[in-house]
Simulated assay, not measured.
Amino acid sequence: MTAMTLTGQVALVTGAARGIGRGIALRLARDGADVALVDVRPEGISSVADEIAEIGCKAVTVVADVSDRDQVFAAVDHAATALGGLDIMVNNAGIALVGPIGEVTPEQVEKLWAINVNGVLWGIQAAVAKFKELGNQDKGRVSKIINASSIAGHDGFGMLGAYSASKFAVRALTQAAAKEHAADGITVNAYCPGVVGTEMWVEIDKRFAELTGAAEGETYDTFVGGIALGRAETPEDVAGFVSYLAGPDAEYMTGQSGLIDGGLVYR
Rank of each mutant, 00 (worst) to 15 (best):
residue 225 G to W: 05
residue 58 K to F: 00
residue 64 A to C: 10
residue 80 A to S: 15
residue 27 R to A: 10
residue 223 F to C: 04
residue 236 E to F: 06
residue 211 L to I: 15
residue 55 I to M: 11
residue 196 V to H: 00
residue 165 A to H: 05
residue 75 A to M: 08
residue 54 E to D: 15
residue 99 G to V: 13
residue 135 G to Q: 06
residue 235 P to R: 10
residue 168 F to A: 03
residue 191 Y to P: 00
residue 25 A to R: 01
residue 71 Q to V: 06
residue 125 Q to W: 07
residue 263 G to H: 09
residue 127 A to P: 05
residue 12 L to V: 14
residue 72 V to P: 02
residue 5 T to D: 10
residue 219 T to I: 04
residue 170 V to L: 08
residue 76 V to Y: 08
residue 58 K to R: 15
residue 242 V to T: 02
residue 160 L to Q: 13
residue 238 V to N: 04
residue 223 F to D: 02
residue 148 A to M: 15
residue 30 R to N: 10
residue 103 E to S: 15
residue 62 V to I: 15
residue 184 D to E: 14
residue 222 T to I: 11
residue 218 E to K: 12
residue 148 A to H: 13
residue 162 A to C: 01
residue 131 F to P: 04
residue 193 P to E: 07
residue 170 V to I: 11
residue 12 L to C: 01
residue 36 A to K: 05
residue 142 V to H: 12
residue 211 L to V: 09
residue 253 M to L: 14
residue 128 V to S: 06
residue 232 A to N: 07
residue 198 T to E: 02
residue 141 R to I: 15
residue 241 F to V: 13
residue 212 T to D: 06
residue 219 T to Q: 14
residue 23 G to Y: 00
residue 46 S to Q: 15
residue 110 E to F: 00
residue 65 D to P: 03
residue 226 G to V: 08
residue 43 E to P: 03
residue 129 A to L: 10
residue 99 G to H: 07
